[in-house]
Amino acid sequence: MDFNTNFILGCSAIGAGLAVIAGIGPGVGQGIAAGYAANAVGRNPGAKSDITGTMLLGQAVAETTGLYGLLIAMILIFVKPLAK
């Protein structure tokens, strides 16, 4: 492999690392959702199963932005669109 290809691959790896910083957002968001869910269970222990279901649904939806970052990182590393 010549210098240019290696350089592009290295930059792709850096870009992939930057892309997964997107994981911070969902982490904070899921934590907030879980915190409020714990709060709600504390107030109304009878509704625990409903609260858990709603929490998991909301967390899974909040996870989407992080997954987009992950997808971009994977495309950069394994598909190597820039090195072609």
Partner: peptide, 10 residues
């Protein structure tokens, strides 16, 4: 579709 795909792929 991307949500399901990316979760299982990861």
């Amino acid at each position: 579709s991307l949500r399901l795909f990316a979760n299982i792929l990861s």
